[in-house]
Each structure stands twice: as structure tokens, then as C-alpha cells.
């Protein structure tokens, strides 16, 4: 699983697929104080992106992938 759920932190790794959107949504609903780490993420599916946009958890570590960070981070921070 490219998304690892720790106590209150979800670590994204590699390509995060659509199949993980639902578990992520569940987890975020149960963890109002959740934080996410995107450092090792190289892509996340639109479905996951949507969940993040709605749940709006703080991103403690942005993606190392500069191109992903460039398009993703403004979107995630817009709604703040």
C-alpha cells in the first residue's frame, strides 16, 4: 500500500492509486487532526486529490518530486 496510515499521520509513497481513495477518506473522517506526509509521493490519483482538497489536512512534508509539488501544493493550500 503506497499510503501508510500511522496514528495520526498518513505517509504517501510512490504512485497512490484510486483504490486508496476510499480508505483514505475513511481514515480522514475518523482522524480530524490528521496530517499527511507527501515527501515520497510521485503521483496521487484525482480521487485522492479530491479527498485531500475536501478534508484539507495539513501537509507536513511536500512532495520531493518538484513537478508534482508545483501543481499539487498550490491547490492544497488554496482552500486553507
Amino acid at each position: 500500500m503506497p499510503i501508510h496510515f500511522l496514528k495520526s499521520v498518513a505517509c504517501f509513497k510512490g504512485v497512490c492509486t484510486v483504490e486508496e481513495a476510499e480508505p483514505l477518506l475513511q481514515w480522514l473522517q475518523d482522524q480530524p487532526r490528521a496530517k499527511i506526509k507527501l515527501r515520497e509521493c510521485t503521483h496521487l490519483h484525482t480521487a485522492i486529490l479530491q479527498v485531500l482538497l475536501v478534508a484539507n489536512p495539513p501537509v507536513t512534508l511536500p512532495p520531493q518530486d518538484p513537478e508534482l509539488a508545483r501543481w499539487l501544493m498550490p491547490a492544497l493550500q488554496n482552500d486553507r
Binding site: 483514505l24 477518506l25 473522517q29
Partner: peptide, 26 residues
């Protein structure tokens, strides 16, 4: 050559509890 990008919902987001993860609304 993607230079500028905006990602926005097509309609206001529902509350998180009502979000359908598999319906694309962007």
C-alpha cells in the same frame, strides 16, 4: 508545456462525511 494550472471543484464541496470518493467533481 504545462505552465499554469488551477484545480477547482465544479460545485461547492459537500461535507467530508458526504463526499463520494469515486465521483469526479474537479
Amino acid at each position: 508545456g504545462l505552465a499554469l494550472l488551477d484545480i477547482a471543484p465544479v460545485e461547492p464541496w459537500p461535507p467530508l462525511a458526504e463526499l463520494d470518493a469515486y465521483r469526479c467533481a474537479l
